[in-house]
Design a binder for these strands. Structure first.
Lengths: 130, 130
DNA sequence: CGGGATCCCCAGGGATACTG
DNA sequence: CAGTATCCCTGGGGATCCCG
């Protein structure tokens, strides 16, 4: 059964079926990946790295409020997902650089507009709260 | 000190300064908004609603695995943020329709490519794990 | 400097039961 | 049908100490 266009806002559009079928099921891999990528700190780290290579301490300062544990965990997850490259140099004191992989850059290109949207709409949203 | 272009992958680009300043600080509103929007269930609900108006029970079935508590909580948060519109009809049995607001649609337009990315890359990513 | 290992805590979230 | 209320628990995540 079809629904006439006037029944819903003009912007409403059906998702590609394979996308809908692929993401909504409970156990699907895309859910896991989505969780990694949209995690509280994951977004910020990915965003920071989209500006280029950064050191551990840079990231720690950049993602204000992150604990060492969560930074390590987030970076490890993103590295396992093939989104972040880790370059450890065997010097004293140690120096480790993190950067995005090709795939990581592809993702960050989608994340940047999202974060920009959040930034632009944040004030309106919190104001509407009261 | 400047870094020459060859030192980093060609895709690396600085974020707009106001964006970087706005999102990385700990207490900023954009962090909160971002957390709502990228929350585990928030993304799926927003995505489902991007296809048009849906009822509570539709959403519950769609976002497979969500508990009633989390569905209620997620919808309430998104409604407070002005992203989701709630239309309760005073009939027996009750019927409540949820749909995206104008702002919600703007957001979903950014979310769809992200979820599509997750779906397309999910297999590669989990395969790379072993 | 860049982490790893531990301990510990509370709130995020599930399950169940009830209601308008 | 569309929620609310309650109980309960575990694992996400902070704090701290240590090590190469």
């Amino acid at each position: 059964m079809k629904v006439s266009a006037s029944d819903r806002p003009p912007q409403a559009a059906p998702l590609p079926v394979d996308l809908a079928d692929g993401v909504f099921p409970a156990g699907c891999p895309s859910r896991t990946v989505l969780d990694h990528v949209t995690s509280k700190w994951g977004v910020l780290i990915l965003l920071a790295l989209s500006e280029g290579e950064q050191r551990w301490s840079d990231l720690r300062r950049r993602a204000e409020g992150i604990s060492e544990k969560m930074l390590a965990q987030t970076l490890k997850t993103l590295e396992r997902d093939g989104l972040v490259r880790r370059d450890a140099q065997p010097v004293i004191p140690p120096r480790v650089d993190y950067s995005l992989t090709e795939r990581g850059y592809g993702l960050s290109a989608l994340l940047v507009p999202l974060v920009a949207w959040a930034f632009e709409n944040a004030e309106d949203i919190v104001n509407g709260q009261r």
